[in-house]
Amino acid sequence: MIIIVNLYAILAAVLFFFKKIRPEPFILGSFIWILMLLAVWYILPYTIYKRSIKTFTDKFIIQFTDEQILLENERGEAHWQWADFSKYMESPHFFHLYFNPKSFFLVPKEGLDDTNKHALRQLFQLHIHAGN
């Protein structure tokens, strides 16, 4: 959707520049583009964060063993067997552990030193198939 809106805005700007259209389509395209940016960058993250504020402010402890992953905080705990994950991927700030193509779990790298990151990579390679 954002690609279509961007293409429409660019096309409207070019046509407006060459005096092929009136200013209204250009203004409409710009308005839709600005609304979409506001929705994606500010409104959606704020509403999601506001609904789940406790989740985003909790402190978690995560433990990786040869049998499972254990996640706990003061309100409870959750654990997953390695077989529950279908693949993993790595981005600059997170390890993405996928249950299925639409559901995943993020492990932040923020508190890990290079040795622990390397150990986690080896554990993931041993128990989970790497993604593309």
Rank of each mutant, 00 (worst) to 15 (best):
W41G: 08
K59S: 05
I53C: 04
A39T: 11
L44G: 10
H129D: 09
F56N: 05
H127M: 13
S86C: 15
R75M: 00
A9R: 03
K19I: 10
F31S: 14
V5G: 09
S103I: 15
E110D: 07
V40G: 08
P92A: 09
F124T: 05
L97Y: 07
V107D: 07
D114N: 13
N132S: 07
Y42N: 10
M36D: 04
L11V: 11
N6P: 07
H96F: 14
L37F: 12
A119C: 00
S30A: 13
L44D: 13
P25Y: 12
N100I: 08
I61A: 06
P108Y: 04
L70Q: 01
L123T: 04
S91P: 04
I32Y: 02
L7K: 05
E110S: 11
F16Q: 13
A9Y: 03
Q63S: 10
N6Y: 13
L70N: 07
F18S: 14
L106Y: 12
I10Y: 10
L35E: 03
H93A: 10
S52H: 08
N132L: 05
Y42R: 12
F60M: 00
K54P: 03
G131M: 08
I21K: 08
R51D: 15
F60K: 02
L71G: 11
F105K: 02
M36C: 01
L15E: 12
T57I: 04
K102G: 15
H127Y: 11
T65Y: 03
W82H: 05
A78P: 00
Q68I: 05
F64I: 07
I61P: 00
P92W: 04
K50Y: 01
P45D: 07
I4Y: 15
E110W: 06
A12Y: 07
E67F: 12
E77V: 08
P108R: 03
I21P: 06
I21Q: 09
P23K: 09
Y46R: 01
G111R: 01
T55Q: 09
R121M: 15
G76F: 06
F60Y: 02
V5C: 07
Y42C: 11
I43T: 14
